[in-house]
Every structure is written in C-alpha cells, then in structure tokens.
C-alpha cells in the first residue's frame, strides 16, 4: 500500500469509528467497545516496552497508581481529575524511573527483570490494600459523584461521550506508537533488544534509551488506569492493579502481536470478547468459571503455538523487516 493509500484507509476507518455511536446506540455494545478501547490503549502502552524485549510485569502497578491517585485526589482533596490525572501520571512515571534506573543501569534483564517488575505490581497492590482506610482496600473504591460541574469532575453519564473520549485516547496511543516508530530511539532500542553489549559498544546509551521508553510506557499506562476509573466509577485493587492485570496485558499484547501498531488492539478485542463471552456464558451463578476457562485457554495457547508466541511473531517480523528493507532499497533505486 502506498503511504497516501494507507493514510486514506486510516481516515476512512477513523471517520467510521467516530460516526459509530451516533448511528448505533445499543448501550451494552457501546460499553464493550469503550472497554476494548481503554484496554487497547493500556496494552498498546505495555507493548511500547514489550516490543523491544523489555517484558514488564509491573504495569499493573502503573495502572493502579493512575486509577487510585486520581480518585483519591478527587475524593479527599477535591482535586479535579484534570489535574489529578497528570499528577497520577507523574507519580507512576517517578516510580518507573526509580525502579527502572537501577535495573537498566546494572543490566538487570531476563528473568531478573521480570521478577523485579512482578514484585513491583504486587507491592502496589499491597499498598492499596494496606491503606484501606483511604482506598477501601480490597472492597473497592468509588469516586464521589459530582453534583454540579460534570465536566470538571470528568464524569459523564452517556456512553457516547465516553466512547469518544476512549477513542481519542486510544488514537493518541497509536500516534505515539508511530512517532516512536519513526524516531531514532527505535533503532537504538531494536539494537539493544538484539544485543545489549553490542549496542552499548556502538555508542548507544542503553540506560537512557530504556528509561525513556519505560517512562513513556508508564505514563500512558497510568492514564489508561485513570480513564478506566473515571469511566467505570468503581475500581478494586484486583481490576486495575496487581499481578493479574500485568499478566493480562502481556497475554493480550502477545496474542494480538507486539510489533504492529494495531496488534495490542487486536489482542484486546480477542481477549475481552473471549472473557465477556465466557462471563455471559457461565452467568452469575458460576463466579470464577470464566476466569478458569480463560486461564486454561491462555496456557494452551502458549503451549501449542509452535515455537512459542513471541518466537513465531519475531520470525515473522524479521522476514517482514527484510522484505520492507528490500522494498525501500528498490524504491531508492527507482527514484534515482
């Protein structure tokens, strides 16, 4: 597809997405769509790191901070989410830097990195539970309903508004993805993910590059948490933070594909529809069954995908990269 053609396709697709809630008004379906958009944004945020081999299981922590800090500031200090959300993002970013810096500086990679980040999300969950006097602990937390200025409180009753907000946020995520795709950092990070020492020897500032992408990823994930909280108006530690949420992000991103901008979105569509189907299928009588089947399916998926998910996707990407490079070279030749 030519550049212009692709742009046109995006424009048409977007127009259709924007128009959707004005023609189609089924609230349940719109609800599912909003959820898909918000989680797609979260998964895209995770993939910013994941695609460069930085497998973090700590993003549940960032998401939890985004959600809880925003809600707490609103309820206890009356601070509008318009300020609360940036504050929560800064908090998540600061945490990401504090944990990320020693990890990257001292080359904590592989299993070690996974476990450190895993602990991070576990600890955030612990903190939310521990501060139950403020956060409601594991019972969950609800932002106070705004009585007068809904816009200031970022609380809306109609699904259409939320759909459009979620769509905008999701689109912003995709745009950031493409910006990174075109930046110099992308090449540096790709080099790092292939061979850290070689990249360092070639003059790449490994620590700085990794920190940058981690910061971006954490900020976006916190935003996802905050938006989720404002939309659902009810959060519990388990739904926005902790190990389960972190794992969910990784699964979805990998199911959909890490290396294309729409991959995490596809992952969100698949996993949320699956979870939703299971939830409805089992009904309210069988609490937990949906998760059980979901977990089993995930394990089976990982085992029976030949060469492993990441591996096969990587392979495909490598051949794609080669193809696109030769295309570029040909294009250059023809232009001459």
């Amino acid at each position: 597809m030519t550049g212009q053609g692709r742009l046109a396709a995006w424009a048409v697709g977007l127009a259709a997405l924007v128009a959707l809630p004005f023609v189609y008004r089924d609230p349940y379906h719109l609800h599912i769509l909003v959820l898909i958009l918000i989680w797609s944004f979260a998964y895209t945020s995770w993939s910013m790191m994941g695609r460069f081999g930085l497998v973090s299981l700590g993003h549940g922590g960032f998401m939890g901070i985004g959600a809880y800090v925003t809600a707490l500031l609103w309820n206890h200090l009356g601070l509008s989410p318009w300020i609360g959300i940036p504050v929560s993002m800064v908090a998540a970013g600061a945490l990401a830097l504090v944990v990320g810096y020693p990890c990257f500086r001292f080359r904590i990679t592989g299993h070690y990195f996974v476990l450190v980040t895993l602990a991070l999300s576990g600890i955030v969950l612990q903190v939310i539970t521990a501060t139950r006097d403020y956060t409601g602990g594991s019972l969950g937390y609800t932002p106070n309903r705004a009585t007068t200025n809904k816009l200031l409180a970022l609380q809306f009753d109609d699904k259409t508004t939320w759909y459009l907000i979620a769509l905008a946020v999701w689109l912003a995520g995709i745009v950031v993805w493409h910006l990174i795709d075109r930046s110099m950092s992308r090449y540096a990070l790709e080099a790092i993910s292939e061979d850290e020492d070689a990249a360092a020897a070639a003059g790449v500032d490994v620590t700085a590059e990794k920190l940058k992408i981690t910061l971006i990823s954490a900020l976006m994930t916190a935003l996802a948490g905050a938006i989720y909280c404002q939309y659902q108006m009810f959060i519990t530690p388990d739904t926005v933070s902790g190990i389960a949420v972190s794992l969910q992000m990784v699964f979805a991103a990998i199911v959909g594909g890490l290396f294309v901008s729409l991959g995490p979105t596809v992952g969100a569509i698949i996993t949320i529809l699956l979870a939703e189907t299971l939830r409805i299928g089992f009904g309210t009588k069988a609490v937990g069954w949906d998760n059980l089947v979901y977990g089993v399916l995930l394990v089976l998926f990982i085992i029976f995908l030949p060469k492993g998910i990441l591996g096969s996707v990587l392979d495909r990407l490598k051949s794609q990269r080669k193809v696109s490079r030769t295309h570029e070279q040909e294009a250059v030749k023809i232009a001459r």
Binding site: V55, H111, L247, D290, G295, L298
Partner: peptide, 19 residues
C-alpha cells in the same frame, strides 16, 4: 521455547489456580 513463554505459561497457571 523462549524463556518468556515459560514464564507466561506459569502466569497462566496462576490465573487458573486462583480461579
């Protein structure tokens, strides 16, 4: 398989055991 898949599979088992 790549180590990350092993990690994730046990992560899936975590889900399974909890639910």
């Amino acid at each position: 398989a790549p180590p990350i898949n092993q990690l994730l599979a046990t992560g899936g088992v975590l889900f399974v055991l909890q639910s």
